[in-house]
Design a protein around this nucleic acid. Structure first.
Length: 956
RNA sequence: GGGCUCGUAGCUCAGUUGGUUAGAGCGCGUCCCUGAUAAGGACGAGGUCGGACGUUCGAAUCGUCUCGGGCCCA
């Protein structure tokens, strides 16, 4: 059914309507894998490295994710940011090698494996468990690698770094050797969670907390010199003085070394009666009532109150051990329960341990691996288990008349997840790296400084993005204890220490390097299969004769904290691969890594080389739910990364990553990502529109001068500004700014303003008309610049668009992929203030015109702007002369059919605009639909304007 | 509890050294176009800038407190 006249159809055929094969619908999910295959086939990464072979390096060093599970949205953000920056820097002319890595050792994997094995694990050797862990890690490296590549992350995927590879393990040991030589490695007791049933140390993840009933005791610790105490605090009562402590684990009392008080809490000296005797003891004021309620007829009377720090330094006599302890201060002391005076056994508690270290108190642990007391305790305890010890100790306290009260208490207590038995805190020998011992790094000279000092100085010289990262890591460095690098696990890198028959450790740079060499050749499993003789066979002098016979050496059982391994990547990767460089230009991870990888890479690098491993450290935040709270997998709104990729494609996810300010929390939901498709489509359609209007444009033949005083000039300048702004946003790592600039440029400058206005001349002018070619000249610049600027973000779409750009300039034409190209450059044209004002005026007049058009639409039913004429009312001759050049531009900006200038005197603005309904005045051109007075002036085409008539003739 | 940090329209973001009626894009609503068409355009409604109190002639911007998040510790 054709209601159109045949003539009309003819005219449509005479137009230069946009045409392109670049599809409107992206079909990212189907097309991205094809493009990936194409890149792989074409060796895009290798090509890029070759293309920039002589360029200066810009190295981003990848922090290794844990090889466990599918990637999640946090990985997507992290890897996308890295990829975008790398690609941008590459387009900026740098050589940007990217070696992805994985953290392979560690408890989560070992935990998973042993859990899956169940009871079978008892029959398996460490080596068997390690083999299973290795397979597991390898499997997930493969899975995650695929998933990262699917995201469009470009890198050396065929040669990533894995912390479990023999070369890597070996280089980690070499870093350790440097530490040993610097004299920073030492062994010391430290309490760990201990399973008596399995006689093994446990990690936090291996604990299950259960509610249990225990007998807690309140104990009077007699002041060593009551007279002195009474004198100091002016207590004129003839009674013994004690400090009242409370504990739920009486068996730890033999190891009591101190009493901790909070320096700012108020304590009371209380006079009370018990067992027919008047006594004085100290309790936190807030707890006096609660505590003395436990003893009937105690008649407590507060004699005096003092602040905790006044008590510090006072001494007491241990009730049943020949030992004097003293009162120390600790910030963690609370007055929620107990007495406010905390029984401190540095060998049996985390807090107690820190208090012990701070106050130089011995880390004393009289409990053996089997949970029985050793011979250093009173002989009525020796040989008993700690559980047998509990009632014994309580009885003894009763006997000594220092048991103030007993109380059944229900509390949550850690249990071994495997044997389901209660665990204890027990001090064991651990390896440490000293943070405060001054040293001079290998090959270095100058002043000996501690690791802590060096780290602080290095951080001062590092750029942090955002800047507060510096304060954060400095705070952590200030307060962190020495680094405990040993773990009692199977799945990890063995600490290469040997012991002779006197239990003296063999640990020298030389011995470590000898083992490193062996590991490099055969992997770290040899630690479990080979004899010390074999392990040290690479260096016959590694074990000095006076130390003992090599064959009789015993191997250390502990492995390294996995952080020491990933924290050595600056060496194992950056220094060991010749095409990388040390230090790296950028480390980029989540802000949790201030404590993690950043700090624990900084320390090894400084210990071994004296140089920090990075110049810049960039951090991003974490995804949260739309309401700002943390996400968990059970949430309905949980965003599954792989699922989102399959649903919307990688480019959409990438673009979304680029649109948010990653410095803070990142609200995320499947809904938000889905809705973000609108932004992607706007950009894609804009690219498509530009491409479609360039189908017949060849810059070699059709390029036109673009005068500044024209809409084309404006558009060209806007593009220049865009290039400058986007570039500086990228340089500042402000992706959301770059994204916004690009998106808004597409939505506003191109779609709403320029592209919309230029339709008439693009479609209706004769193909070779200079004004048409001029607009194409600008659009051609636009499509190239936009595609390039978008390329780091939407890697697939940009590369696709790149293929559709015809007649690229020589340098670009040589780039099969946009990712090989260099960034666009601004035209270099300077713009005068007067020119800017003219453009501003032009846009103001557009606003005026559109507003009036809206009124005409509502009041007169004028729906098509082409039915209106825009009249510019100008008084000033000079201004009119300047504006006349913009005549057609002004007309097209409001979409009018015609424009004219009138000298109607207006008294306020120098120029104003008036829209006039011309439906009754002029005939509409059948081709351009413009209503103009010249329609019908060409006798051959009575239904066309002169311009259109000429265009039709030229087309024939 | 501590260190660091975030809180501007439904969403994502701008808001320079404190200064006229707090901006943009998207979304939404209404309308138009049908020669970018599973596109495009116009107009419009949305915010007392987490809250309170201060400093100031004047604060989203400075200070104190407070509420609610986040990361890391304890």
């Amino acid at each position: 059914m054709s209601t159109e006249t045949p003539q009309k159809k003819n005219y449509k055929q005479t137009l230069n309507l946009p045409q392109t094969a670049f599809p409107m619908e992206a079909k990212l999910v189907q097309n991205e894998p094809k493009r990936l295959a194409m890149w792989k086939e074409g060796r895009l990464y290798e090509k890029l490295m070759t293309a920039r072979a002589k360029a200066p390096h810009w190295v981003l060093h990848d922090g290794p994710p844990f090889a466990n599970g599918d990637i999640h949205i946090g990985h997507v953000i992290n890897k996308t940011l890295k990829d975008v920056f790398l690609r941008y820097k590459s387009m900026a002319g740098f050589q940007t090698p990217y070696v992805p890595g994985w953290d392979c050792h560690g408890l989560p994997i070992e935990h998973k494996i042993t859990k899956d094995l169940g009871p079978k694990v008892r029959e398996m050797s460490k080596l068997d468990v390690r083999k299973l862990c290795h397979e597991y890690a390898q499997k997930y490296v493969g899975i995650q690698s695929e998933q990262f590549q699917r995201l469009g992350i470009l890198g050396e995927w065929n040669n990533p770094y894995l912390t479990m590879k023999p070369e890597y393990e070996s280089e980690t040991l070499n870093v350790f050797a440097d530490f040993v030589e610097a004299g920073l490695v030492y062994k010391q007791l430290k309490p760990v969670h201990w399973s008596i049933a399995n006689q093994t140390a446990l990690a936090d993840a291996e604990l299950e907390y259960k509610e249990v009933d225990d007998n807690s005791v309140f104990v009077e610790f007699a002041a060593r010199n009551p007279g002195e105490v009474k004198g100091k605090f002016d207590l004129r009562v003839n009674a013994p003085v004690s400090f009242l402590i409370w504990t739920t684990t009486p068996w730890t009392l033999p190891a009591n070394m101190a009493i901790a008080v909070h320096p700012d809490v108020e304590y009371a000296f209380v006079q009370y009666d018990r067992n027919g005797q008047t006594r004085i003891t100290v309790v936190a004021t807030d707890l006096v009532e609660k505590v003395f309620a436990k003893v009937s007829d105690s008649n407590p009377q507060v004699l005096k109150t003092v602040r905790g720090n006044e008590l510090v330094g006072l001494e007491y006599q241990h009730p049943f051990v020949d030992r004097v302890g003293r009162v120390v201060h600790a910030e963690y002391v609370t007055t929620t329960d107990g007495t406010g005076l905390v029984h401190t056994a540095p060998g049996h508690g985390e807090d107690d341990y820190h208090t012990g270290i701070t106050n130089h108190i011995e880390i004393y642990c009289p409990v053996q691996a089997n949970g029985r007391f050793d011979s250093t305790v009173p002989n009525w305890l020796t040989g008993l288990t700690v559980w047998e010890g509990n009632p014994k100790v309580t009885d003894k306290l009763k006997e000594l008349d220092v048991l103030f009260a007993e109380e059944k208490i229900r509390h949550s207590y850690p249990h071994d997840w495997r044997s389901k038995t209660p665990t204890i805190f027990r001090a064991t020998e651990q390896w440490f790296i000293s943070l405060d011992k001054p040293f001079v790094p290998k090959g270095g000279s100058g002043e000996a400084k501690s690791l802590r000092q060096r780290a602080t100085e290095a951080v001062e010289q590092t750029t942090f993005i955002p800047s507060w990262g510096k304060a954060r890591i400095l705070g952590m460095l200030e307060s962190r204890p020495d680094w405990c690098i040993s773990r009692q696990r199977a799945w990890g890198l063995p600490i290469p220490v040997f012991y002779n028959e006197k239990d003296e450790p063999l640990l020298t740079g030389q011995s470590v390097r000898a083992v490193a060499k062996r590991f490099c050749e055969r992997g770290s499993d040899v630690w479990f299969t080979e004899t010390p003789t074999e392990l040290l066979s690479c260096d016959q002098t590694a074990c000095p004769a006076h130390f003992g016979e090599v064959a009789k050496l015993r191997k250390e059982k502990d492995i390294f904290d996995v952080w020491f391994e990933s924290g050595s990547s600056w060496h194992a990767v950056l220094q060991c691969r010749s095409y990388l460089k040390f230090p790296a230009d950028l480390y980029l991870e989540g802000s949790d890594q201030h404590r993690g990888w950043f700090q624990l890479s900084l320390l090894p690098a400084l210990g071994a080389t004296g140089t920090p491993p990075f110049k810049q450290v960039l951090t991003h935040g974490f995804v949260v739910k739309p309401d700002g709270t943390k996400v968990s997998k059970s949430d309905k709104e949980y965003v599954t990364a792989t699922q989102e990729i399959e649903r919307h494609g990688a480019d959409l996810l990438r673009l979304w990553c680029c649109s948010v300010d990653y410095q803070g929390d990142i609200p995320t939901s499947p809904q938000a990502i889905k809705e973000f498709g609108d932004k992607y489509r706007k950009i894609r359609n804009t690219l498509r529109y530009l491409l479609s209007n360039l189908y017949d444009f060849d810059p070699k033949q059709n390029t036109q001068e673009v005068p500044q005083n024209s809409l084309d000039g404006w558009a060209s300048a806007e593009l220049d500004q865009l290039i400058a702004d986007v570039t500086s946003a990228y340089d500042a790592y402000q992706l959301h700014r770059a994204f916004r600039l690009l998106h808004d440029f597409c939505a506003v400058q191109i779609s709403a303003v320029y592209g919309n206005a230029m339709k008439d001349r693009l479609y209706c002018e004769s193909p070779n008309s200079p004004v048409r070619r001029r607009t194409q000249t600008v659009m051609y610049r636009m499509i190239i610049a936009l595609t390039k600027l978008l390329a780091p973000m939407i890697v697939f779409t940009a590369d696709e668009a790149w293929e559709y750009i015809q007649h690229k300039p020589k340098d670009d034409a040589e780039c099969a992929s946009v990712h090989l190209a260099l960034l666009p450059q601004p035209s270099g044209q300077t713009v005068s203030d007067q020119q800017r004002e003219e453009w501003k005026l032009l846009m103001d007049l557009r606003d005026q015109g559109l507003a009036q058009l809206d009124t005409l639409k509502k009041e007169a039913g004028l729906n098509k702007a082409l039915d209106a004429e825009v009249i510019y009312e100008v008084d000033d001759d000079d201004l009119r002369r300047r504006l006349q050049v913009y005549g057609p531009d002004l007309e097209d900006l409001v979409g009018a059919g015609f424009h004219s200038f009138a000298e109607v005197s207006t008294n306020k603005p120098a120029v104003s605009v008036k829209m006039v309904d011309r439906r009754e005045t002029y005939q509409a051109c059948a081709r351009s639909w413009k209503r103009r007075p010249d329609v019908g002036q060409d006798p051959d085409y009575p239904d066309l304007t002169l311009r259109d008539a000429a265009a039709v003739k030229a087309n024939k």
